[in-house]
């Protein structure tokens, strides 16, 4: 991998795309949404519940096991 990384034709000039401060609002919003989505796929109706019942748990149950989240 490293052999190709340093081949000259693969190199581009080192220019950050934008100041990090411009990224912050997008980063916060994306992180928040992603954490909510990860939570519902990975953990809801397991150790903790936002909604009553087990329907959401059962709906994404196989993904939960396959992706490596703790289940049963």
């Amino acid at each position: 991998m490293s052999d190709t990384t340093f081949t000259p034709e693969l190199e581009a000039p080192s220019v950050p795309l934008m100041p990090l401060s411009d990224l912050i609002p997008y980063a916060l919003l994306t992180a928040l949404l992603a954490i909510i989505l990860f939570y519902f796929v990975g953990a809801e109706e397991g150790a903790t519940s936002v909604f009553p019942g087990m329907t959401m748990h059962e709906w994404v149950h196989d993904a939960r096991h396959l992706l490596g989240f703790p289940c049963h």
Binding site: L23, A31, L33, A34, L37, V41, G42, D62, A63, L67
Partner: peptide, 23 residues
């Protein structure tokens, strides 16, 4: 069910991935 789980997980991962890439 499995499709919902993988698609939701992967879209969220893709969004975070894009922002880390931008940084």
């Amino acid at each position: 069910g499995l499709l919902t789980g993988t698609v939701v997980y992967a879209i969220a991962a893709g969004g975070v991935f894009a922002l880390v890439f931008a940084a």
